[in-house]
Design a protein around this nucleic acid. Structure first.
Lengths: 373, 373
DNA sequence: TTGTATGCGTTATCAC
DNA sequence: GTGATAACGCATACAA
């Protein structure tokens, strides 16, 4: 039959030599034919046919290790993620997959679980597997910059997605966080909100600062007052749904202290979900009593009740672009690295759904009415 | 420095031979020392130290291809998924990762995007990479059974997660869908609901039928009437969030036809989200006017408004168990496959949150939702 | 038009 | 204690 008689593990498979023996031709001819190498033009059609038939009958599959060893190519792109349960990173992965699919490359995905030790171990493994390129999806990034910079040492074309290296030759693709912050506040402001609460991102997160700068820029332009009591900050545990819990408890605290705000801007969608929960529990309706704005536009934002207004990051597209750049660098032979270290800043986009609404001129408010500020 | 002078791609790396030359010892000695082979006991401590130092200085990394070729082992487990954006499959992946992490194995994850052609292509690639085991995460499975059966031909230990082969020697781990259906209906019934609407899963999905059998069993036991007008069925597109949209439109249709039901049981959580949306748009509150029950307990079920009552599948645990079984089979050398083809049926568990509540004896309800978490 | 010889980087066996 | 040698499966330059 198709399967050789003996052998204990999956490695005892039919090899080129088997096909050669069975077909009566030499291994090289087999190789040439099956790979449709240029020279195969000169191989008799009948021979080819025969060889293919035998190969199929024996269920021959070229061994990736032998082949890669010989060709000195792995045909793989390493993809390092930090938390696969983060929907943000999921969509990026999809983009990467899609773009990689029609190519000769296979993505080699590893999940570092937000832990530095695992990051390093997996990185080492990817390097041992001789990945020809490396995409690092930095969704929630607390791996210190220094560690990332080391990536550069390995002579493997590397692109960072979703985060930015302040310096260094590592390319990156991410949205324009500054502009995103700007647009976010602009959105709430243009709906008439003047009393706005903010849940900032965790300070060590680089994205977070840039986004905040955008917020401040807009506030400065329109002269919006931003009282300290309505500005809080995530601590940024690396737990999976932690920002929901944090968003919720921070919002509750703010409400208990002074519930007078009419809109809340959250660092990301999960935080916004938490804020909505806290507002509801406090007896305030969204958006009638308080608008809530998220950031990212994760797939569930649209399904949520109320559906979440948010600032959209084109995550799939980020994945696509990352692959484009990697392939490009690989093609350049890693030498003339045109545009290496370049930063692609994609435009964010406000998506208005149900959770934000124009402020009502006066309005009935729920039991606890705010006092004047 | 650490990096060899020339070379164009990532393959021109320091090799054993480089370390040998640089250290003055032979390649075999280097290999023995770096791998801490048993024989390395007889190598002089000084030699070892020296070799390690040189290896480190040259940033030597053993080539996985050379090594695998020689050892005839890949140290990888293939993981085939069908839609990475499905949160169901995400949690299973996490379980797989966790269990695999302390082992010598690396997961090789590929996403078939619910397409048969891609499934086959990726399967071929995994086989070329000589994965030592294969885990197929069948979250939303429309690959025909026949295709799956073929998996068996490849002499690679294989386990199916989240779905079951009616016959054949492929092992699988999944929850007891029949029991899940039973418990789901029991939950609603015990809350006092007698007018219940059902959104069944797509018929070609095997899970779906089993689950429905459980529903029918409970209904039979208590003599519950299930009018046809309140039973609808998903078609099951392979689009990502399709069950949300379908759940929503099916629910709307039922409401327009006869809104008399007081509870709705959805095939899965996404469908339930859609149903909640439809109910809300129809002016009915959840759970005051109508309870909604999901299935799966995806991570977002708890964050949703109202938080979703659902039947929990222990997804992470399913991943863990799948890995356990694969490792076991690998260890047995693929021969004495003890318990191969076994089906692990995990117990489902009802998780009550806000979206289901006891039916009200009669009439008026307070404007505020019942409970808060 | 097809076959032979060589080497990719590693490890295992055996000889020294 | 350490080094030489062969072989894993494949692709290619060169010979025939």
């Amino acid at each position: 039959m198709a399967i050789p008689k003996d052998g204990k593990n999956s490695f005892s498979r039919t090899t080129l030599a088997d096909v050669a023996r069975e077909s009566g031709f030499s291994p090289s001819t087999i190789s040439i034919v099956l790979n449709e190498a240029p020279i195969s033009k000169y191989v008799a059609a009948k021979t080819k046919e025969h060889i293919r038939a035998v190969a199929k009958r024996l269920d021959y599959r070229p061994d990736a290790f032998g082949r890669s060893l010989r060709k000195r190519r792995s045909h793989t792109i390493g993809v390092m993620i930090f938390d696969i349960s983060d929907p943000f990173c999921t969509l990026i992965l999809q983009g990467i997959e899609k773009k990689l699919h029609p190519t000769e490359f296979l993505p080699f995905i590893v999940d570092a679980h937000n832990q530095r030790e695992q990051f390093e171990r997996y990185l080492a493994m990817l390097l041992e597997y001789r990945v020809e390129g490396l995409i690092v999806v930095a969704n929630w990034l607390f791996i210190d910059i220094e560690t990332l910079s080391e990536l550069e040492r390995h002579r493997v074309p590397t692109v960072l997605v979703g985060s930015e290296m302040r310096s260094g030759p590592l390319g990156s693709v991410l949205i324009n966080n500054e502009q995103g912050g700007y647009l976010a506040l602009q959105h709430l402001y243009s709906l008439g909100h003047r009393k706005i609460a903010f849940i900032r991102g965790p300070r060590p997160l680089w994205d977070s600062s840039r986004r905040w700068e955008g917020v401040l820029r807009f506030a400065g332009e329109v002269g919006l007052k931003m009282p300290k009591k309505w500005i809080v900050e995530l601590t940024g545990s690396s737990e999976s749904n932690s920002s929901f819990e944090e968003g919720r408890s921070l919002t509750r605290t703010m409400l208990e202290h002074d519930p007078g705000f009419t809109a809340l801007m959250a660092f990301d969608d999960l935080t916004a979900f938490g804020a909505v929960r806290a507002l509801r529990n406090f007896g305030r309706r969204v958006p009638e009593d308080c608008s809530v704005l998220g950031f990212d536009d994760v797939p569930y934002a649209a399904l949520f009740n109320p559906s979440l207004s948010t600032v959209r990051q084109p995550m799939e597209r980020m994945g696509l672009i990352a692959v484009e750049r990697i392939l490009n660098e690989i093609q350049q032979g890693g030498e003339v690295v045109q545009g290496k270290g370049r930063v692609d800043l994609l435009p964010p986009e406000v998506v208005q759904r149900e959770s934000t609404a124009a402020i009502r001129p006066k309005g009935k408010i729920s039991p606890k009415s705010a006092e004047k500020i």
